[in-house]
Nucleic acid binder design. Structure first.
Length: 351
DNA sequence: AAAACGTGGTG
DNA sequence: TCACCAAGTTT
């Protein structure tokens, strides 16, 4: 009897013929697999590829990454989003060096306990680097299996997640777990896409329940997302000098560990009058509002930031708050900043 | 268990 | 413009 599922059998030749050649597919080094998997969390290959290449070059081993400062790693991560990934990677690299002598845990379970490595990433590293027979379950797997097996359970709820995870585990080619896992994900990325799937090119179309029933684009089912919060950030730029103030963002909010100009948050959009009052209340009478520089709308996954940038001046004698750091406008590029700030600083330099 | 965490691409 | 969502993890 064949121990390999029909699904795996149909998938393997398709993958052999259609797999993209990507840098992390030509290594078994668990460190590089790890790096690629973290970069690709909630991130498209197109967006992450350049970051992977830069990181692999600058930090070729876990020791290199462990030796870097957090600011430096965040700077190299700048623009990729979900910055906790970078902070967790560095922390985990340090732990692997100090506690494991630089050697990765070689099984799914050991990997799972490291910061930033959840069920998906642990399974990916274990199957690809160590040939352990564990199935990965990511967004592609949810979509491919929900369609192929006609799963109507919402896949963003525990019951639906369990259903797909069990199914993925039964379908796994246990002789070639790494190849099989990547094949399912590649099918989801290239053929079984969220919109306009290419069913004509699909190796499992003849046994796809969603195709048979004409509901491919209706699956997978999801209950929906939570609504986004609107916030107003008023940023302070020093007027008339080629300098800049920066503050490191604290824990418990967006952009933790990144730098932005000092900022006052308001519940509604503030005009100049209200802003001037807030400025003097926060910092004292020797501070003055000069005017508004620009307004930006920045959309995040759960928030919309209405950012207003103000020119501000202060009396020569007035001190800066302790957590502000002053830097030349041209030195700002050394600090990791959110995209929003990067864009606006670009405008300042050009103005 | 639901919500938070970034950014950019797509239809 | 807007909704969706991409090789998820943490709290």
């Amino acid at each position: 009897m064949s121990s390999v599922s029909w699904f795996a059998q149909a998938l393997a030749p398709w993958y052999a013929a259609n797999r993209r050649s990507l840098p992390w597919r030509s290594t078994r080094d668990p460190y590089l697999i790890w790096l690629s998997e973290v970069i690709l969390q909630q991130t498209r290959v197109d967006q992450g590829l350049a970051y992977y290449n830069r990181f692999a070059l600058k930090y070729p081993t876990v020791h290199h990454l462990a030796a870097a400062t957090e600011d430096e790693v965040l700077k190299d991560w700048q623009g990729l989003g979900y910055y906790s990934r970078a902070r967790n990677m560095r922390a985990t690299a340090q732990r692997i060096v100090s506690e494991y002598r630089g050697v990765f845990p070689e099984d799914h379970n050991g990997l799972r306990h490291l910061k930033g490595i959840g069920p998906y990433t642990a399974a990916a590293i274990a199957s690809i680097a160590f040939n352990e027979p564990v199935a990965v379950v990511d967004g592609n797997v949810f979509r491919v299996l929900a369609r192929c097996f006609g799963i109507r359970e919402p896949i963003d709820r525990p019951a639906g997640k369990r259903l797909v995870a069990d199914l993925a585990s039964r379908l796994l080619d246990r002789k070639h777990p790494g190849e099989h896992n990547q094949a399912v994900m590649e099918l989801g990325a290239l053929v079984c896409t969220p919109k306009r799937p290419q069913c004509n090119a699909c190796p499992v179309r003849s046994r796809c329940l969603a195709y048979e029933e004409g509901v491919v684009e209706q699956l997978p089912l999801k209950v929906g997302r939570t609504k986004v919060r609107e916030r107003h950030f008023n940023y302070l730029l020093p007027h008339g000098v080629s300098a800049l103030w920066l503050v490191k963002r604290a824990a418990g909010d967006i952009w933790q560990g990144l730098y932005t100009p000092p900022m006052v948050e308001s519940d509604v959009r503030w005009g100049a009058r209200r802003m001037q009052a807030a400025l003097q209340q926060e910092l004292g009478r020797s501070w003055h509002l000069v005017g508004s520089f620009t307004e930006e709308r920045h959309v995040l996954s759960h928030q919309v930031i209405h950012a207003r940038f103000w020119w501000v001046s202060k009396a020569r004698t007035a001190r800066l708050p302790a957590d502000w750091l002053a830097c030349g406008l041209k030195d700002a590029h050394r600090y990791p900043v959110p995209r929003l700030v990067e864009r606006v600083l670009g405008e300042v330099l050009n103005s």
